[in-house]
């Protein structure tokens, strides 16, 4: 992938280690694996809403990867900023939640307990709230339901 230099790869002679042109500002890639990303997804959505929407609107204008590099860097910087903030403020809860996701096929509904502590910590420390868009009017959001039917143990 992009953040590996490619020279140490075992893929053979067809690896392209050429770096980005110097005219493009460098940005550190996030380098976060899937479970922490999934754990942080709704907070990324809340924290980086403007940058994400800006980027997607730009992509809607033109699918050329060269067209939206600036917006893409902003998106990545914002996500990195959020992950750093999470690690500074709620590292214990964060680690617990994504560890749980890792062990449970990355299903949210099996990890509600660590998720609630994480959500609470994120709201108290950073003021970010998990909101699932499109939940029917007047209905409790699925991650806040106290006694759901689908849980770790099917009853």
């Amino acid at each position: 992938m992009s953040y590996k230099d490619g020279t140490k790869s075992t893929l053979g002679p067809y690896v392209d280690p050429t770096p980005l042109p110097a005219s493009v500002p460098q940005v550190a890639e996030l380098g976060v694996t899937s479970a922490p990303l999934k754990s942080a997804a709704f907070f990324i959505g809340a924290h980086c809403k403007e940058y994400n929407e800006d980027f997607m609107l730009c992509k809607n204008e033109n699918r050329d990867p060269a067209h939206c590099l600036l917006e893409g860097r902003r998106v990545t910087r914002c996500a990195a900023d959020l992950i750093n903030k999470m690690r500074e403020n709620c590292v214990k809860e964060f680690n617990e939640h994504w560890g749980c996701l890792e062990l449970n096929n990355q299903e949210y509904y099996r990890c509600r307990k660590p998720e609630r502590t994480l959500n609470k910590c994120m709201f108290d420390k950073l003021g970010l709230k998990k909101v699932i868009p499109g939940t029917p009017e007047g209905q409790t959001q699925i991650h806040e339901v106290e006694n759901p039917i689908h849980k770790r143990m099917q009853k």
């Binding site: 890639e29 980086c48 990867p65």
Partner: peptide, 14 residues
């Protein structure tokens, strides 16, 4: 957006 931005940079580099 996050994943797309990352893969875009890689595609552009290539």
């Amino acid at each position: 957006p996050l994943l797309l931005a990352e893969s875009d940079r890689d595609t552009y580099r290539r």
